[in-house]
Design a protein around this nucleic acid. Sequence first.
DNA 1: CTGTTAGCGCCTTCAC
DNA 2: GTGAAGGCGCTAACAG
Lengths: 357, 357
Amino acid sequence: MAAKRVSIKDIAEAAGVSHPTVSRALRGQGRVAQETRSRILALAEEMGYTPSLVARGLVNQRSYSVGMVVTTIADPFYHDIVRGVEDTALANGYTLYLATTNVDPDREMQVVANFQGHRVDGIIVASSRVGARYADLLSETGVPIVLVNSHADHSNIHSIAHDDYGGFGQIVQHVIDRGYGRIAYLGNGRAGRAEQERRRAWRDILSQHGHTPAVSSVGPTGRQLGGTIGVQSVLDAAAAHWHDLPDAICCYNDTMAIGALKILREQGIRVPQDVALTGVDDIDMSAYTQPSLTTWRQPRYEMGVQAMALLLAQVNDARVADARVADAKGADDPSTAPSPMRQEIITHGELIVRDST
Amino acid sequence: MAAKRVSIKDIAEAAGVSHPTVSRALRGQGRVAQETRSRILALAEEMGYTPSLVARGLVNQRSYSVGMVVTTIADPFYHDIVRGVEDTALANGYTLYLATTNVDPDREMQVVANFQGHRVDGIIVASSRVGARYADLLSETGVPIVLVNSHADHSNIHSIAHDDYGGFGQIVQHVIDRGYGRIAYLGNGRAGRAEQERRRAWRDILSQHGHTPAVSSVGPTGRQLGGTIGVQSVLDAAAAHWHDLPDAICCYNDTMAIGALKILREQGIRVPQDVALTGVDDIDMSAYTQPSLTTWRQPRYEMGVQAMALLLAQVNDARVADARVADAKGADDPSTAPSPMRQEIITHGELIVRDST
DNA sequence: CTGTTAGCGCCTTCAC
DNA sequence: GTGAAGGCGCTAACAG
C-alpha cells in the first residue's frame, strides 16, 4: 500500500528539469537558478521527498552511520557514554547502530560483521574486556575504531579512557584519611583493564601508607549479585587474616557495593560504623541507598562526546588520505601516506563523599 | 590506507567469471557449478569479502535495518525490551538503530527523519507518550511501525502493550489484602498511557472495596528525584485529608519508590511498619533496597521479542502486498488490496511480594 | 550452467 | 545554468 517512495527523478519530471539539477538544488551545491531551485524545493517538500542515504552512501562510499558496541546497557555506567556518543553523532548527521554483546565473543563477531556489512563509517567499542581482545579483528576491517576504557597498540585504533588508577587511588586515600586501617578490595572478576587499574591503585596507595593490601576478592560479575557473593569472600578473608571485620571495603563499582550493602545489613554489620563502603561510577542510585554511597564520578557524557569526536576525526582523516592517494595515483611517494598517530585521551573524574564512609 | 573494499567484481576477475555468477555462488541461489562455486567461496574468504548491504539494499528496496526509539535507556524498564528487540532483530538478519529522545518532540522528529533517510524497514517506538502523539507523523511515512506500551488508531500501526490496569490493580489488591486501609497513589507526571491506566486501577480497586481514592499526587519525572518530590506531596495531602500518614503508597514505578523511600527514611517513617510502599517494574535494584520492594514484573524481554516479531510480520506482509500490486498492475481490483488488520498484543505480568508491604 | 544487459537512487565529471 | 553520460555494488531478468 505504501506509496512508492519519491526519488529525485520524480521531482525532476514534475519540475521539468533533469535529475542532476534536482540533486544540485536539493544539496545547495553547484549553480542552479534561484527560481529553479525554489521551485524544486517546494516540489520536494510537497511530494514528501526524503533523500536516500543508502543511495547517496553507495556513491559517496560512506554510510553516515556508525556502530557502537557495549557489553550491556543495563550497566548505568554506559548510559551517559551512549548518550554522549548519540548526541554527537546526531549533531554531525550520523545515525547510531547500537549492539550489546554481554562479553560474548561470538556475538561480538556477528555484530561487527553486521556493522561491516552495513558499511558503517566507524565503530566505537565500549566494553572493558572485549575491545582489547578483538583489537586485531577490528583493526583488519580497515574501519576507524575508537575504544572506550580499553586500549590496543594498533596504530589505527584510538581510545578514550578514564584514569581509573588515579581515581581509585583517591578513593583509597580518602578512606585512609578518614582513619580506617584495614582496607579490603572487592573486585570484578569479569572486568578487564579497569579491574586491574583499580586493584593496582588500592595496592599501591595502601603500601605507600604502610598498610598491607592483604585482603581482597572478586565477585563473579560487576552487578549486585556479584557484590553479594564477593563481599562474603572478603569477610571470610578478613576473618582469616585479621580475625576481625575489615574497617572498610572499596568496591569495584557502585552496583557491587549495593549488593554488598545488602549482605552487610543482613548480617547486622553497620555501614559505616562497623565497616565503611565505597563504590565507583556515581550511578543515580548511589545517592538513594541507605547509607548513601561514597563514590567516584567519571565524566561519562563527555567521554561519549569525545569518543565520537575522535571517531569523526578519523573518518575525515581517512577521507582526506583517500583523496590524497587518489590524486597521487601513479606517483606513490611514501611520504604522502597518512600517518595515523594513535591518540589516547585520558579523562579524570571526581570524588563524591557521602555517608558510607 | 585502508585497502580498497573488495567487491564481487574483484572476485569475479580473480576467478575468471562474471559478477553475477559470483553473486549467485555467494548467495547459493541459481545454478552454479559445484566446482566454480567452491572456488569462488574460497576466493571470497581469502580476499576478505563482505557483501555490501547498502548496495544489496538499494536493489532489493530494503535496508536490513530497523530503527528503535526509546525515551531513555537510563530507565531500567527499557533494558530488557531493547534486549529482546535486538536479539530478535539479529536473529533475523537485521541490525538495530537505537535513538533516545527524552520525550523531546524535536529530537523525535529528527530521529525519525534520520531513520527514513536510512530507509529502515521498520520502526519500533517504546515511549509511553511520544508514540501516541506522533502516530500521524509516523504513519504517513509508510514505514511499518510497532508501538510498545502505547497505541494509536491507525490501521497500519500495530502495538504491544502490558496490561497496566490489571497489573496495578493486583498490586492495590495485594495491599488491601494485607490490611492497609488508607492507600495513596504516587504517579508520574511525565508518563502517558501507563500513568492513566495505573491511576485508574488504583481508583477502581479502592472504590470496589469501599475505600476512598482520595489521596494521590504526581512527581515531575519517573525517576528517583520525582519520587522524592512526589512523596512529599502525598504526605502533605494525607495530612490534610486524613490528618495522619497514609497506610500505604503505591508508586508509579520502582525508581520513584526508591526516591520516596529515601524521604520516608529521612523523616523517620518506617517502611512497612508506618507506611507500606510498592513499585512497578521489578528493576534489579528493587531486591536490594532496605526494605526490599514489593513490585510488579512485566515480561519485558518477551515484549521486546514480540514487538520485533510483529514488525517483521509487517515488513514481510508489506513485501507480499507490493508483489501482489506489481503482479496485478493494470487490473486494479480493490479486493486484492492488502488489508492490514491492526494488531494489538497485550501481555501480563506477575506480582512480586517483598518486604515493603 | 554462465554471461550480458539493465537498473536500484544518487552524485560527479564533463560538455553544452 | 543545465543536461547527458557513467558508475557506486549488487541483483534480476534474460539470453546463450
